[in-house]
Design a protein around this nucleic acid. Structure first.
Lengths: 196, 196
DNA sequence: GTCTATATTGCGATAGAC
DNA sequence: GTCTATCGCAATATAGAC
């Protein structure tokens, strides 16, 4: 085995296991075994189980800074929103474990919440609020909108779609082929509402 | 201590602790100590830690059947939707632990998911889909709506509002006094969209 | 850098007294 | 119905060989 290979093998294995059963649901023994390395490597590289969890969390939430890229490259307000929705869906497609860390930290925060999770999510919300405010200023959106409520409504729609997967598998096609239809659909509901 | 008192004391203590740290994050020892009863009471009443967790879960999700009451007492489609939104918010206000079990089971299902959680949430979604379909039939809603997507958009808005509490505390007033404003706001966004 | 072996602590469950 | 005491096992962490 190459030098340092144990470290990355531990991170990728830990990502899956922590996502599936949480920080307390996995033992260091099981983790090391699943990664095919010695149990002592966890302390050696990460200082213990919590250090490994912290590294996993850091990696998971590093992708959140992409919201600034979206805000920069798109010029139209509605395009920014569409880009955001697409990004969230693609993000969860590329990383099936992220939502588990996301909800787990929001409802059962660990000691790493305020240092890693809160800033990452906070940044996304802050930029989205800015986008909505810009839309209101430019007379694209209604003047009576509360920007934060509006952002949470939008983020909620798309995050909950993924969250609900387990209970809606029989009702709806959750495959990526339907993603563009879904995005159009959500853009429609969010901008025009459901009334005839 | 009265007869049977240990049982209910264990349930209420376990609800808080399981919500805060999950099934694996709490030991039976700690649980019994926090409840002020003997450790052996857990096996005596619930057959073990998992049995206690199962009882807690059952109690948490029993409230979900209320959706049928809403569907029965309200006659107008839009009133049904407003009632649903109000119910969800009040439900989380009355029970701050529910959302933790909800998201935890949806992202890290335990063995009790399919027996307790899936049927409870599934029922709510099923009734909501029915309500949206009814609105489409009655020409209140647009014909091109996908009912399931629409339900998830609505449920997502309101569930995510609560989920986001920890990261939006500084941005928005999360107190119950604002609930009715929030409900009106969400009804507005959901029915009419955000466009001017 | 990686291993095995082990020290120490805490786990869930239960037997048996009251 | 509730308790204390204890069994057997698994947990994390680390010492020390290579």
């Amino acid at each position: 085995m190459d030098k340092g290979d144990s470290k990355s093998k531990l991170i990728s294995t830990a990502t899956r296991l922590f996502a599936e059963r949480g920080l307390y649901g996995v033992s260091v023994r099981e983790l090391a075994k699943a990664a095919g390395v010695s149990i002592s490597m966890v302390s050696y590289y990460f200082g213990g189980k919590e250090g490994l969890y912290s590294s996993v969390l850091q990696e998971q939430f590093s992708s959140f800074s992409h919201i600034e890229e979206i805000n920069r490259v798109e010029t139209e307000t509605l395009k920014k929103i569409e880009s955001y929705i697409r990004w969230i869906i693609v993000r969860y497609r590329n990383n099936p474990y992220l939502l588990r860390f996301y909800t787990s930290e929001l409802t059962n925060p660990t000691q790493f919440f305020s240092l890693i999770v809160q800033p990452a999510i906070g940044k996304v919300i802050q930029v989205l609020v800015q986008i909505i405010e810009e839309g209101i200023s430019n007379n694209i959106f209604r003047k009576d909108l509360n920007p934060v409520d509006t952002v949470l409504a939008m983020a909620g729609m798309v995050n909950y779609y993924i969250l609900s997967t387990l209970v809606t598998q029989e009702l709806i096609n959750h495959s990526p082929e339907r993603d563009e239809v879904l995005i159009r659909h959500y853009m429609d509901i969010f901008t025009k509402g459901i009334l005839r």
